[in-house]
């Protein structure tokens, strides 16, 4: 298997290197990437969008459709993760062939069969012992008090960093997606250090469905507002910088909150 893999990798690598050799140097100012539409955005961006961060301008304004579909994609990924059956009991396949022929293990009625059916006492006992052990294993993960203290100590500051990244994203590198990633990181760190229950309490259960969808919803709202103002779906009023900033602000907050909750929820789903 290994030599064939290496051969395949070489077969892919050679055309890639050959192709890369024909590219202009990566920092040349006259490369096409700096002279075509990118230069146009840099030239007109501030006047047209009212945003100072051109990456945000491209992301939310010039290529708003792209980002709209992007938040729908991550929302769909969460939907796919949630759609998979959660916490299904692992079937011990390694020892499956032996009990399969002798006594079929009832999947859901193991605790009932433990007392009533004398035919398969061993299977019932094994089953119940497994059931008893599983929660112990889950709660037995040792978390050092140092880690716990440091995570609790740092969490508010990391949250402040995320908020700063969100609200200063228009004049510094940063923005909604970055803030979302940091928000989710706090959530995951708290979940690892303090336990899933404590972390899950940070996001109220009633709000979760709405918070998970808030990024596409914010985009839909802004797209509708743009349609009312300009007559084009996701259109921005080109001369009204206040309206543009407000629309961009709604999008950034929607992306930060929605994206963060989606990432955290995906992690929560894995942890079972």
């Amino acid at each position: 298997m290994r030599p064939w893999s290496l051969l395949l990798v070489l077969l892919v690598a050679l055309p890639l290197v050959a192709g890369v050799a024909t590219l202009p140097p990566h920092d040349a100012p006259d490369a096409p990437i700096h002279t075509q539409v990118g230069a146009l955005y840099l030239e007109r961006g501030v006047a047209e969008t009212g945003m100072k961060n051109m990456v945000t301008a491209v992301l939310l304004n010039y290529r708003g459709f792209d980002t709209f579909i992007e938040v729908v994609v991550i929302f769909t990924a969460l939907a796919a993760v949630l759609a998979l059956p959660k916490g299904s009991a692992p079937v011990p396949k390694g020892s499956a062939p032996v009990p399969k022929g002798s006594a079929p293990v009832p999947k859901g009625s193991a605790p009932v069969g433990k007392g009533s059916s004398p035919t398969s006492p061993s299977a019932g006992a094994a089953r119940s012992r497994e059931d008893e052990e599983r929660p112990e294993v889950a709660s037995d993960v040792p978390v050092s008090p140092v880690v716990r203290f440091v995570v609790r100590l740092l969490a508010p500051f990391i949250a402040m960093f995320a908020v700063a990244m969100l609200f200063r994203g228009h004049i510094t590198p940063g923005g909604g997606f970055q803030a979302a990633a940091v928000f989710a990181a706090i959530f995951i760190a708290l979940g690892l250090a303090l336990g899933q229950d404590r972390a899950a309490r940070l996001v109220p259960v009633d709000w979760r469905p709405w918070l998970q969808g808030v990024a596409p919803l914010a985009f839909a709202l802004v797209a509708w507002i743009g349609w009312r103002l300009t007559g084009a779906f996701l259109g921005y009023p080109i001369h009204d910088h206040t309206a543009q900033e407000a629309m961009g602000f709604v999008l950034e907050i929607g992306i930060a909150v929605g994206g963060g909750v989606i990432l955290a929820r995906v992690f929560l789903e894995m942890e079972t």
């Binding site: 920092d27 040349a28 100012p29 490369a31 700096h34 961006g45 961060n53 990456v55 004049i171």
Partner: peptide, 12 residues
């Protein structure tokens, strides 16, 4: 590919 010699981040 998007970097340029001595370039600043595209924030005006």
């Amino acid at each position: 590919a998007g970097m340029v010699e001595g370039g600043d981040p595209p924030i005006m």
